[in-house]
C-alpha cells in the first residue's frame, strides 16, 4: 500500500516536472520559454557588443573637453553638447566632401555594376575556349593582395596622365578590376546560371540579339544581385582609402580620407586665436564627432535600403562555391 502511494506521488511529481520542462525547455516541435529567453539574451548581449563602439563614440563625441578629463563622467556627458560636431563639420568641409564622396562612390559603383554584370553574362551564357581559365584567373585576382599591384599601377596611371583624376579609379572598375570585383562577378555569374536555357533559346528563335536577352531577361532576373552589389560596392568605395589616396594624390577627398587628415585640417579651420582655449583643443571628442559624421551617410543609406538588402541576401546564391 505504502509503496503504491509512493509511486503515485512520484508519478504525479514526474508529470508536473515534465510539464514544467515542456514549458521551459520546449518539446521537439516547439521552443520553450527558457530557450526563447536564452536566445533573446544572447542576441541582445551580442548586439550590444556589436554596437558598443558606436555607442561609445556617440557618447564621447558629445562631451566637452572638460568632461573628458573629469573622472566621474564615464558615459553620460554633463550636458548635451553639439559643439564638437560643429568643429568637425567645419574641419571636414562636410557638405562639399559629402557630395564628392557620394559622386565618387556612386560613379564607381555604377561602373563596377556594369562591368561585373556583362563579364558574368559572357562567362555564364556563352561557351568559348578558355572560359574555365578566365574563371580561375578571376578567383586569382581576388586572392592577390593589393600591395602587389599598386606601385606599378601608380606608374601606369602616371604615364596615362590619370593620377589625381577620377579615371584612375574608374578605369579599373569598368574593366572588371575594381574593389572585390571578383566577388561581384561571381554573384552575377550564379544568378545568370539560373536562367533556364529554354527561355534563352525561345528568345533567340524570336530573333532577339544576345544583348537584348541580356538587358530584357538576364538583368531583371538578377535584381537581388544588383541590390547587393550596389549597396556593398558603394560602401566599399566609400570606405577604401589606401588605393584612393595613392592614385588620386589627394585631389579628390572623400569623407574617410578627410577624416584621416582631421587632426591637421582642424586647426586651419577652427579659430586659431583661441589656441589656449581648452574647449577648442583637438581631442578624441572631436575625432569621434568627425568619425560619426563620416559614417552617418552610410548608416542613413543602410536604413533606407536595408529591407531590400536583407531580402536580396535571402535570394542570392552568394553562398555557392
Amino acid at each position: 500500500m505504502e509503496v503504491i502511494k509512493n509511486q503515485k506521488i512520484s508519478y504525479k511529481h514526474r508529470k508536473g516536472f515534465l510539464k514544467i520542462k515542456r514549458v521551459l525547455l520546449g518539446m521537439k516541435s516547439s521552443e520553450g520559454i527558457f530557450y526563447k529567453l536564452m536566445m533573446y539574451f544572447l542576441l541582445t548581449v551580442l548586439g550590444f557588443v556589436f554596437l558598443y563602439p558606436i555607442l561609445y563614440m556617440s557618447s564621447t563625441s558629445m562631451m566637452s573637453n572638460m568632461d573628458l578629463i573629469d573622472n566621474s563622467i564615464k558615459w553620460i556627458p554633463s550636458k548635451l553638447n553639439f559643439k564638437n560636431y560643429q568643429f568637425a563639420y567645419r574641419a571636414l568641409d562636410f557638405v562639399k566632401t559629402l557630395f564628392v564622396s557620394i559622386g565618387y562612390s556612386g560613379i564607381n559603383t555604377l561602373a563596377l555594376l556594369i562591368s561585373s554584370s556583362t563579364i558574368a553574362y559572357g562567362l555564364s551564357r556563352f561557351k568559348f575556349v578558355g572560359r574555365k581559365l578566365v574563371i580561375v584567373l578571376i578567383l586569382l585576382t581576388f586572392i592577390m593582395p593589393k600591395a602587389l599591384f599598386f606601385i606599378p599601377t601608380y606608374r601606369i596611371m602616371g604615364q596615362l596622365h590619370l593620377t589625381g583624376n577620377i579615371f584612375a579609379i574608374l578605369l579599373p572598375a569598368i574593366s572588371g578590376q575594381g574593389l572585390q570585383a571578383a566577388l561581384f562577378i561571381l554573384i552575377f555569374f550564379q544568378f545568370f546560371n539560373m536562367i533556364p536555357k529554354s527561355l534563352e533559346e525561345a528568345a533567340i528563335v524570336d530573333g532577339a540579339s544576345s544583348f537584348k536577352i541580356f538587358y530584357k531577361i538576364a538583368i531583371p532576373m538578377a535584381i537581388p544581385a544588383i541590390i547587393i552589389t550596389s549597396v556593398y560596392a558603394f560602401s566599399l568605395y566609400w570606405n577604401e582609402t589606401f588605393l584612393a589616396r595613392t592614385y588620386l594624390e589627394g585631389k579628390i577627398n572623400t569623407l574617410p580620407m578627410s577624416l584621416k587628415n582631421l587632426s591637421s585640417s582642424y586647426y586651419k579651420v577652427n579659430p586659431t586665436d583661441q589656441y589656449n582655449n581648452v574647449e577648442v583643443k583637438f581631442t578624441e571628442a572631436k575625432a569621434f564627432a568627425g568619425t560619426i559624421l563620416s559614417i552617418l551617410p552610410l548608416i542613413a543609406m543602410y536604413a533606407i535600403v536595408q529591407k531590400w538588402f536583407v531580402e536580396s541576401i535571402d535570394k542570392t546564391g552568394i553562398t555557392g562555391e
Binding site: 549597396v231 574617410p256 552610410l298 548608416i299
Partner: peptide, 17 residues
Amino acid sequence: LIFFLPIIILNGQLLEN
C-alpha cells in the same frame, strides 16, 4: 540590422580612431 551594420560602415580610419 545590427549584425549587418559593420559590413557597411567598417573602414580603416574608423578602426584606427
